[in-house]
Amino acid sequence: MLLALLLCYSGFTALCLSMDRHHAELLGHKPTAGRRKLLKLAGWSLLAVSPWVLVSRIGWGLGLVEWFAVLMLSALLLVLLLPYRPRLVLALAGLSLLASPVAVLAQS
C-alpha cells in the first residue's frame, strides 16, 4: 500500500504542477507548453500505474477499494499542504519518487 500511496501522491503533485497557477506558486515561473504536457503525462502515468500495485497483490475486489482510499488520502494530503506548506509539497513529492524503488524492494 505504501508504494501505491507514493505513486498517487507523486502523480497528483505532477498534475498540480502542470497548472499555471500552482507551478508559478511553487517554482516561481509559469511552465512552458512542453513542460506542461510532460507533467500531465507523468501525473496520469503515475496514477494509472498505482492501482496495478494493489490489484496484483490482493485482487480486484479489495485492491480497488484500497486504491480509492489511497487516492483520497494522497489528494487530501496535497490539498491540505498546498496552501500552508507549499515547499513541503515539492519535498514530499521528491522523497516519494526516491522512496518508490525502496518500496518496490520491500514489497517483494
Rank of each mutant, 00 (worst) to 15 (best):
L78T: 00
L46C: 07
A93S: 09
L7W: 02
S10N: 02
L105A: 15
V55F: 01
H22F: 13
L82A: 02
D20C: 11
R57E: 12
V65I: 15
A69N: 09
R85N: 07
A103G: 08
S10L: 05
L105Y: 14
A33K: 13
R85L: 10
E66A: 15
L77C: 09
L81E: 00
L82N: 01
G61L: 12
L90W: 01
V49T: 10
L82K: 00
H29W: 10
A33Q: 14
L73Y: 07
M19L: 14
M19N: 13
H22A: 14
R87C: 07
S50T: 03
G59D: 02
S74V: 03
W44V: 13
A48Y: 08
F12W: 10
V89D: 00
G94E: 02
L5A: 15
L97G: 02
L26A: 04
S18M: 07
A4T: 11
E66Q: 14
L6I: 06
A24L: 14
A106R: 12
L38N: 10
L7K: 01
L81I: 00
S56E: 10
L27P: 06
V79Y: 15
M19F: 13
L47K: 03
R36G: 08
L26E: 03
L41A: 15
G11N: 01
L3M: 06
S74Q: 09
